[in-house]
Amino acid sequence: MKMLIPTDLPRRLLAPWLLGAALSAGAAQASDLPVATPADHGIDPGRLTALSAWLREDGLDVHSLLVIKDGKLVFERYTDGLTRDHNYELYSVTKTVTALLAGMLIEDGKITLDDDIASVIGDYRPDLAERVADMDDIELRHVLSMSSGLAYDFAPEGDPIYYGADDRLDLIADTPTRFAPGSDFEYTDVNPVFAAAMLDAASDVPLPEYAAERLFEPMGMEHYAWQRADDRGLVSAGWGLRLRPVDLAKLGMLLINHGQWQGEQLVPADWIARMTTPQAVRDFGYYLWRQHIVDTETSYDMMGFKGQFVTALPEHDTVVVMTGMLPIEGGLRHAKNVRIFRDVVNDYVLPALDAEPDGTHAPAAQEALEEELAASLASHPEPGVFVDPTDAPQR
């Protein structure tokens, strides 16, 4: 649903109207993330204004861009009349949420990192037990760290593992291995399908229900949905989750705060430490990238197809969230959307955090930022990549 923008307001009144609509929409749902101005936290608003202007003037289809500093929402930018209440298909950011749930199920005593595909899936799906029997050396730790060695033969277009699957586990049950589990890293989406099934088997309820009860509801999330389940009701652990950007920011804060949310230990601190520790490769832990967006300091990075990102910067107590439809060419680590987000964080956000704002001009700088955010909200950038029906923002 798009915001209806009045066409009869004078230009000098339109910008404040747009800004007020953007900031007020969904404010009650995000009451646990207080709003502050950049200058309140020593952040240079001029650099954030320049960031927004660059994205707008270059026509980059960034749906949302948020900066959270010291637990406060200090920068919130939307385009095309979108509001705080819209959620987005997160693609591989879903994997990081899956890893958090894995840690919670391990803490519950429901599963361990040593549990293997053959034993867990064999009990979960007896009809597939014989076909997965030779996967007894592929453990949960391997599928969570992309080191399983599984070599699923993806179809070039419209692979049913992603679209319209009757039974994803049946599709992948005969997947061969390319290397010994734990010996190498290969980012492949067969892993989160097995992860989803193993965690679903371990939980007393379907994985989306467990996530809602143990993570989403306690963190005050709104408008969440875990879609794209197969016909048997199994979601993928690698895509299909939809969250609002403000709730993505909470996940980044959860990492910075060692699994605590508002004083409650939702995820074990030792599991957060494991997740953020490199496993089979130097920049990837358990479904979480490390120092992939920022390499000058610690960063925990969630990355999703077409431009969905969360970066948590513990040393600055800062989280940056972006969603959008941006170009994908360039490969896993250096796709154009990844490079754009690196520029957002390294060229604009970090300098804004480290700048010395001129307090004498703070009101004028804040006014300029608000006018720019209003202009961005009224802009209509074209997608930089093909758009699927699932990519449409929802409420």
Rank of each mutant, 00 (worst) to 15 (best):
E76A: 07
G304Y: 03
T390C: 01
A39V: 15
M104D: 04
L73F: 04
L373K: 12
G240M: 06
G304E: 08
Y187N: 00
D317K: 07
L255C: 04
L373E: 04
L60I: 01
R47T: 04
G59Q: 02
H41N: 12
T298S: 08
R131L: 02
K250Q: 08
P38T: 05
R342G: 05
P393L: 12
Q279R: 10
L51K: 12
M302S: 13
P176E: 11
A312Q: 06
M104S: 13
T188G: 04
D108G: 11
A237G: 15
M135D: 05
G307Y: 05
D115C: 08
P393A: 09
I172G: 09
A280Y: 00
S92V: 03
H86N: 11
Y286K: 02
A195M: 13
A229P: 12
P16L: 09
G164R: 12
Q394L: 14
L171K: 12
E57S: 07
M104L: 13
L4M: 14
N346C: 08
K2C: 13
D317M: 05
G259V: 11
A212V: 02
L199G: 14
L332P: 00
R125P: 03
P38R: 00
D388P: 01
L9H: 03
G220T: 00
G263K: 01
K250C: 11
Y163N: 08
D166A: 11
S119H: 14
R232D: 04
N346W: 06
